[in-house]
Design a protein around this nucleic acid. Structure first.
Lengths: 184, 184
DNA sequence: TGCATCATGTAATCAGTTACATGATTTT
DNA sequence: AAAATCATGTAACTGATTACATGATGCA
């Protein structure tokens, strides 16, 4: 299970509450791993019980208290152990592709709207990634040796950008194909 | 749940047994949806109980009997219904990206082998897809209007090819980054 | 007054994986 | 003699989603 490891990475980058983690999973970490708050809370409790995380109750004024989690030495060791194990390539779950092949048994034209909708979603996501790249990874780099954390975050973001660009090009291919089949 | 729909599509393309489906999920359908035989058998039973599939016991000589499944009218209607519902873009689960960001808290060099391994896996998969494309989608097309099923299968395969090419390019980017961080 | 944000959780259910189990035939 | 292929399944478990629940503050 990689949610646990994604949480370790995120909390090493910056300690925080379950709520904050859930928001990060909607933003940067969500570029390559998704999770809902329910699941995050459950995993956080377990990880704390397992000694991989420390909790600190943080009272706040004008807001409910929060539990700030940080990674213990045991947590860091667990992450290191996982990093040294080989993982298998992620299995693909591409629901839209199921639909496209399914359209052969229905009306291909009915899918055009849906594919256009996905195209917009991916275009938005790409714009969002590109804005993040400009914000976080341009400008003069600090003198001295390169910051590994920064470089690695950037290469992962470039992966997200490449993925969205590929998706957009493919969705355009799909649209052209659907149009060809509809009005030849 | 799209496994059910992936099974409907696959059985509409060609009726078959659970075993045969499992093999297709390792090949063509596996390009965009994965499933193990255990899960397939379970879902097949449920779908048959729900009246979406018909079963026919096929005795075979020199082999165990098999159950050949085919899609009922109700099954076809269920697929059509799903095709007309909007779906949300697939959520990403990119374990390798978690590892790459995690490498900032460990030794980035230790990841090089792992990334190279993934590169080989994707190169193999790409070669496999390209061979399939030559086998199934080249040569003179039949006269008359284009075959929708064929065109749609092809565009999905092109998606798989585009994905693998993008992955390969990105993994090369990752490797270059790791080398830069390791021996600057 | 109503909605959004911050903050945490439980309960029920569904989906997916891993391990185990059986048994014949064909190939090496 | 051993391994691979064909063929089907059960059981236990883990992971993930959906729905429900609570309650304060701040903004329009």
């Amino acid at each position: 299970m990689a949610l646990e490891h994604a949480i370790l990475v995120s909390l090493l980058e910056q300690p925080g509450s379950g709520y904050e983690l859930a928001r990060r999973f909607e933003r940067s970490i969500g570029y390559f791993w998704t999770a809902t708050h329910q699941q995050i809370y459950r995993v956080l409790s377990r990880m704390e019980a397992d000694g991989r995380l420390d909790v600190r109750e943080v009272p706040q004024r004008a807001r409910p208290d929060k539990k700030e989690y940080s990674v213990t030495e045991a947590g860091r060791a667990a992450l290191a152990g996982w990093l040294h194990e080989p993982i298998q390539s992620d299995s693909v779950r591409h629901e839209l592709a199921v639909k496209i092949r399914g359209a052969a048994f229905d009306d291909p034209a009915a899918l055009i709207r849906e594919v256009e909708r996905h195209h917009r979603t991916h275009a938005d996501r790409l714009a969002h990634y590109l804005a993040g790249e400009v914000r976080d990874f341009t400008g003069p780099q600090a003198p001295g040796p390169p910051d590994a954390g920064q470089e690695l975050q950037h290469v992962v973001l470039r992966g997200g950008i490449a993925y969205e660009r590929m998706q957009l090009a493919w969705l355009e291919d799909v649209l052209a194909t659907l149009h060809r089949l509809t009005a030849p």
